[in-house]
């Protein structure tokens, strides 16, 4: 009978007893530590509120049937998809989505392609003016893209003369892609520098040309960085308002960000809840792209060092 009493209590959820050995590598918390922890949490939570509250308001008003042209707070909430319907039926929203997606995709493709070449060249080859031009690239990067706006008009006119199908949107792609090359080249070069050149030599002996060395050996290794560059350049057209607003004149040519802006800045088309609804939907293509690239983003260098 005593035996049963001595039996250790059955653990709830198979968790270990409190008295078990302290396993954490960090020292146990002191009072000051606990206070510090509380302060940290308070700060983090208030920060989260600052970020989340507007988002929450946006989501709320996007689905609120009682909202009209202007978003007003304190309104009664009634769930409905009215604003989404308005977005699709009364605006060029689908056109904007399409514009943005193809612009983003082409920008992404061009950027990754160019940066691959420039990054590889800067990382692996010695040539005259290498240091100088790299510095130049970095300096150019500090000048915001939009200062060239008048030049873009001129450039577009010059190019569209002999090439009539060169639209303003294509110009925009070139600007986005070109603008991203400088900084991304620098980033990719530094990343590639950490890949041992022994791999290049081994590939060379194994019979690879420079192109093959890049495509078969180096590119797979720097894939995480390429994926990040791809994601960034894909996202840029989604967030930029200024260039498309200035460069593109017809409403149906606009990109998402610029198009949505007309819903809050133009009295004729003013529709704030639809703006919120449209803003919510922007996340969809970006999240999709993120999920597509997710596998490439992780792994890579982590999965292979050269040294023993």
């Amino acid at each position: 009978m005593n035996q049963t009493a001595k039996k250790p209590k059955k653990r709830l959820f198979g968790r270990k007893d409190k008295s078990d050995v302290y396993l954490s590598d960090r020292p146990p918390l002191s009072t000051a530590g606990i206070i510090g922890l509380i302060i940290t949490y308070v700060l983090l939570i208030s920060w989260a509120v600052v970020v989340i509250w507007p988002l929450f308001q946006m989501v709320k008003s996007a689905f609120n049937e009682t909202q009209f042209q202007y978003i007003t707070s304190g309104q009664r909430f009634e769930f409905g998809l009215k604003h989404f319907k308005a977005l699709f039926e009364e605006t060029n929203y689908l056109k904007w989505v399409w514009n943005t997606i193809w612009i983003a995709l082409v920008t992404m493709g061009l950027t990754v392609l160019f940066v691959s070449f420039t990054g590889y060249a800067y990382s692996r080859f010695r040539f005259r003016g290498k240091k100088f031009s790299l510095m130049g690239l970095m300096l150019i990067q500090t000048i915001p893209t939009f200062v060239g706006i008048t030049a873009y008009y001129a450039m577009h006119q010059i190019i569209s003369g002999p090439v009539p199908f060169f639209t303003r949107q294509m110009m925009l792609v070139l600007i986005y892609a070109g603008g991203g090359i400088a900084g991304n080249t620098f980033i990719l070069k530094n990343y590639m520098d950490s890949v041992s050149t022994d791999l290049d030599d081994a590939a060379k002996i194994d019979g690879c040309s420079y192109m093959q060395t890049y495509r078969l050996i180096i590119m797979p290794i720097v894939r995480p960085m390429l994926a990040i560059i791809a994601l960034w350049s894909f996202m840029a057209p989604f967030t930029d308002v200024l260039l498309p607003t200035v460069l593109l004149t017809k409403n149906q040519d606009l990109t998402l960000a610029a198009g949505l802006r007309t819903l809050i800045s133009d009295m004729r088309t003013l529709n704030q809840p639809a703006y919120a609804a449209g803003g919510l939907l922007i996340a969809v293509p970006i999240v999709v792209m993120f999920m597509l690239l997710q596998k490439q983003l992780i792994g890579g260098l982590a999965s292979g060092s050269v040294k023993g």
């Binding site: 022994d198 019979g207 292979g304 050269v306 040294k307």
Partner: peptide, 20 residues
């Protein structure tokens, strides 16, 4: 003559295995 046509093989100190 380029390395690939020299009929050689080389073992590197770092091994230089293709990590992927």
């Amino acid at each position: 003559v380029p390395p690939k046509d020299r009929d050689i093989a080389m073992v590197f100190q770092s091994y230089a295995l293709y990590p992927h």
